[in-house]
Design a protein around this nucleic acid. Structure first.
Lengths: 336, 336
DNA sequence: GTGAAAGCGCTAACAA
DNA sequence: TTGTTAGCGCTTTCAC
């Protein structure tokens, strides 16, 4: 049925070791033998069984990637980065979506371990103690990417979120805005990353002697933010808000949609800024001014880190990686 | 180091076969032995090596998915469908992006074969003879998804594109439009699927005694379509066009962006319809009237088909699957 | 430069 | 119900 190394050896009239040697270029083989083997491989259409190979070499060339939802914008960009770099080094990725369920995250961690993956990248939006414990005791290198929470002890690739908020605020002030509303998700208000952003926002407001104003809603999705539009608009009107700084692009887009449907123009009547630079941010009209979280790079850097530690064998690899911040000045914010 | 079935057997004081039996529930085991084994597994934290298991059972529980670009909207939806259904049956997916390069598609087909995947879903945007040949000779079940081309002989999941175009045209006519421009990509004009759509468009135009007008551009990306905006607008003006039916949502969105930037309002001044219903279509303002290509379902149905044929062992499974058409009537088209 | 043989961790006859 | 054993397809000593 499937043709194996034995068949090749037989046809080439050499031993299977010799065949193995030419396949792997692992030891010198006489030109004569090599030729015969190569020929047999060609004729038979032989393709080595990676499973068997993995079993003996203990190298699966597999990186496990657990994501919140492969269908979400930013996740697919991270995965793209992982995949593209992994491919350069002949690593394949095996993927699983948790849809925010820590039980499923856990299941994938275990499953991937049994699949002998050589590294795991976990893109999560939640924090679960069991998951953290499991990771800490795992001998497999894990990179933990979470756009809401920092989990001390887990290796990650991150942005200095406070500085990022500062940068955005500085820009809004340059445009003449003073009454700036910060819109965020209730659930995140205590998350480590959101706290840092809020810190940056408050600090900036203080510098211009303004009272910070934070409004929280119960969602982090576009459609969700849309539903809260009326409520947000109320806050805007009651406080003479001229610019809204949203903790995630999704909120910004949802809000802009609501405003659009109400006939309120952005940025003429109100400026809106986001955070993340998800891919729609740049194609949406008006295009969204935002902080670029370099998702592709996050993925790319993550897998690079894993590959490096795989090569070094050592866990010399214990420092988080900070990525540069970039502000995207686009159409949704305007000078007043 | 890693703990194996042997360690468990030793600790439980039984043979490895007994351990295997309790792990797999394959044969009756005495309660006593089962208890001891379970206990040993627990204590040692044993997790079976799937690689070894796969080698002997010849079941990898892996589905290979080759996509054009995991970072593109519709692809991620397809993958989501595949993944979600696969998961239900304990299948993992291993993914590779070809970025439109047939050589890479080929490489993945071969790679996935060596990885012993049990089925392959190929989401392509191109057609390559070598790839087709390879698939046809592969003993692994392949589902071929291509939103531009139909490739006879390859199993697929599809929509009746002509009927879909008819439905959209009928709707536009209902809204009072007569001078309807069809916008498509030059490269696709001869593709099987595009031909069907154009057929539908022409047929509908003929019914109302209008001359069909097709404009082609050299892209199928949002930014690309934007760049051709001026050119398209020219055509619109010169022909009193009141509605543009685009062969892909991406073109429609790019065009709408251009019109927006020119101060031309959609749908007040011109109606725009798309095809595909990519996820941004519904969040964009104005929301895009379009034909829903049910990407998630395509993925889900594809893997279901593979799983079924895997179960049946037989290749009883040779019929393409047609999915229902749904028109999404949204904000970008208006009555005149 | 080459082949024989051991063994990676597991499942599945086969015997007991 | 249980243990022994023979592989799955491959890499890798170890002799020659």
């Amino acid at each position: 049925m499937t043709i194996t190394i034995k068949d090749v050896a037989k046809m080439a009239e050499v031993s299977i070791s010799t065949v193995s040697r030419v396949i792997n270029d692992s030891k010198p083989v006489s030109p004569e033998a090599r030729r015969k083997v190569l020929n047999a491989i060609e004729v038979l259409g032989y393709e080595p069984n990676e499973i068997a190979r993995s079993l003996v070499t203990r190298k699966s060339n597999l990186i496990g990637v657990i994501v919140d939802d492969i269908g979400s914008y930013y996740v697919s960009q991270i995965v793209r980065g992982i995949e593209e770099i992994g491919r350069m080094y002949n690593y394949d990725i095996i993927i699983g979506s948790s849809y925010g369920d820590p039980k499923i995250e856990m299941k994938f961690l275990q499953l991937f371990k049994t699949k002998q993956v050589e590294g795991i990248i976990l893109v999560s939006e939640i924090v679960d103690d069991d998951v953290i414990d499991y990771i800490e005791n795992l001998k497999i290198q894990v990179i933990y990417l979470n756009r809401y929470y920092v989990v001390p002890g887990l290796l990650t690739v991150y942005l200095d979120n406070k500085k990022a908020a500062n940068i955005m605020m500085e820009y809004l002030r340059e445009l003449g805005h003073g009454n700036i509303l910060y819109l965020t998700q209730k659930r995140d208000i205590d998350s480590t990353i959101e706290k840092r952003k809020i810190e940056g926002y408050k600090e900036s407001m203080k510098e211009i002697n303004k009272e910070p104003l934070i409004h929280t809603i119960d969602t982090h999705r576009i459609e969700g933010a849309y539903k809260y539009g009326e409520e947000i608009l109320e806050v805007i009107k009651n406080n003479d808000i001229t610019a809204v700084f949203c903790s995630q692009d999704e909120l910004a887009i949802g809000l802009m949609n609501y405003l659009y449907d109400q006939g309120i123009t952005v940025p003429e009547e109100i400026s809106v800024a986001g955070y993340g630079d998800i891919s729609v941010a740049s194609i949406f009209r008006p295009t969204l001014t935002t902080i670029k979280e370099p998702y592709y790079d996050m993925g790319a850097v993550s897998i690079r880190k894993i590959l490096k530690s795989l090569k070094g064998k050592k866990n010399s690899n214990t420092e988080d990686i900070e990525l540069p911040i970039r502000i995207k000045k686009r159409g949704s914010c305007k000078k007043i």
